[in-house]
Amino acid sequence: MALADLRPRPSARRRMNMFYLLDTSGSMRYNDCIGSVNRAMPEIVGILREISDSNHDQSDIYLSCITFDNEARELYDAPVDVKDFRWADVKAEGLTNLKAAFDLLEAQLQSGAAMSAPAGHLRPAVLLLSDGDPDDGWEEALDRLQANLWFRQAYKIAIAIGCKPSNIEMCRALTRFARPLDAGGEPVIISIDQLDRLYDVIKLVSSTVSRIGSSNAAAGGRSPAQRIRDAIVNDAGNIVGVNIPSMLDDGQGWY
């Protein structure tokens, strides 16, 4: 038997997990934000399939979705290969229980749960999308999440919808969430003022993160985290009504 024949096994493809944390509180109905999510997600799947099929590093992309309103729930029972992923619309109602979403994500980011591909994982990506101040308790949950090794390594992107100066708690939560920790680089936060741009932003962020994150090869003298940030800043910054804010010095918010 030739050595090359030793492992002709599909299981040896590495996996990149993408986690979507989607705010489905009642306020997401305003300006049909939830409709933008529902329209963008099926299109993302097609883009991600192409990326997964074409990358040289032979990694598969798996998707997980956690929605949060009065409580948090996993939309899919297990991470779904993007080849099999079908989106079903979500509805918006209730409060903004970000704490429960963080707890659920922490439970997923365990070797026995979502992170159990036999051939190992590339860094996961976590995309958080929210439009309002979270309910109490999110900070303690985020502390627990930030102690998780997978989360520390993950690419983290926060999308703030219609954030006003009075949304201090939302600003703090998304800023703390987006801290790169062990992934390196600078935080990636996208603030959307023109709400009809949400659809474009979700597609842009998803395709950028999956394209760069599912490949081993780096380019341009920058880390993957920095390349993701640069690409998003460059592309999202050109969309009218979308801002890439700068962090405040104390790391508690943006301007």
Binding site: Y76, A78, A88
Partner: peptide
Amino acid sequence: CDEAVRKESVLSTMYRRQSELAGI
């Protein structure tokens, strides 16, 4: 229904893995 669509997605991935495991 929406829930059935989601579960069918998961099921497809499970079948894919089952097929890979059978080969392994």
